[in-house]
Amino acid sequence: MPSNLCRVGLVLSGGGSVGAYHIGILKYLVEHSIRVDALAGASIGALNGSIIASSSSLDSATKKLEEIWSLLANNHPLEDRDSSNIYKIYKVLKELLLSPNNIGFFDDHMLRQILKDYLNVYNLNSGIPFYVSAYQSEGSLLDISKALLGKMNLNNTLPSNFFHVQSMHGTEQINAILASASIPLIFRAKKIGGNYYADGGIGGMKSAQGNTPITPLIKHERCSHIIVNHLGDGSFWNRHDFPETTILEIRPGRNITRDGLARDLLGFKPININSWIEQGYEDAYRCFSNLGSALSSIKIADAAREKRNLSIDRLNDDDFKVF
């Protein structure tokens, strides 16, 4: 059982193309030699997280992710330039008619290719513990409806499940990672075990339970300190639901939304990607620095008190006497 003494976890939340923000955070962590002992991701956080967990270091992970996102900026993962419009309409109708419960209007082959090119399975299985969140699908249309209602705070969705990737084998690992990023209607839900799973960000919408998969890092990995990031403005996720854990939330210091919720989710615009990477670093710097100043002043005060007590003890123990 891992020790509870200063074990650091990192939660990468979902948010589509805003996921480039994670690179900025990683850059800050690398710069300040902050280690990560366990990792959990939802949606784009699961995809980014899989690269991190399968890299030899955070530094090499950052470099790989920069390459990947540069590729995504120049080659939209949902764009199908090769097919004609008629073919695209045919595909939509085919999905609706042939698999109405599991609809995916887009192919995830680009994401699969990226994982194939950049994810080292051997390193992943011997690397830091990695969890992904995925939502047990009730059918694509129902999933998306519930997600929208949850987003409007009119209903809450069921909680997402968390999967320990290293406990899975073969294609199931890739399926779990891709399942976490399978936005209903965009990509088909993936089969894990006997059930189908979709985007983890859908689960527990009201409190962003699925989109902020901290639970396995507390429950299974016993992380004492967890860094949580949010890819949206004013996330309703509440740190006080986890009173036993020391949490650092990296919250946006300025609006993270660029072109609107939907466009940001699926946009992958190069200019936005670069600005999110920059903002990720900026927000990490601000949040860590403010905390660092307070903690270092306490450390200095503790050391000074220790020194004072030591000096007084020496003074009391000397042989000085007044006759």
Binding site: S224, H230, D233, G234, S235, R239, T246, I247, L248, E249, R251, P252, G253, R254, N255, R286, C287, N290, L291, A294, L295, I298
Partner: peptide, 27 residues
């Protein structure tokens, strides 16, 4: 000491959370 450290985290980082919510509400 971990509890005292948590107090500091909750206070200092809590201000970040507050600022985020206040900014969104203001907008």
């Amino acid at each position: 000491p971990q509890i005292r450290e948590k107090c500091i985290f909750d206070y200092i980082n809590g201000l970040e959370v507050l600022e985020d919510h206040l900014r969104v509400r203001s907008k």
